[in-house]
Amino acid sequence: MLLIHCPYCDETLPESEFAYAGEAHINRPADPSALSDEEWRDYLFIRTNARGPHYERWRHIHGCGRFFNAVRDTVSDRFLMTYEAGEARPDLTVKEAAE
């Protein structure tokens, strides 16, 4: 069981309070009708399946209820960071340099 830092509660809490919610930074198109069938298919179904850092969404469902974003390494299953929904995709190289 993982520990997850909720950026809204600013607390690191057991995974059982959270629910996974799929890949992050896939925004619903503003006008879906303008999309071709292929573009819409990609929005619906095509996901990264990353080996290594993966940008994904979690919900603190048994807590503050907020959806938020996380970067988790799918190899080590370790969270690199979490951040609020709506924030830009963080640049990991900057983060690594800072550390």
Partner: peptide, 13 residues
């Protein structure tokens, strides 16, 4: 409820 919250919080805040 979860689906509605998802859209509300992340697509239409």
């Amino acid at each position: 409820m979860n689906m509605m919250e998802d859209y509300l919080q992340t697509e239409w805040p």
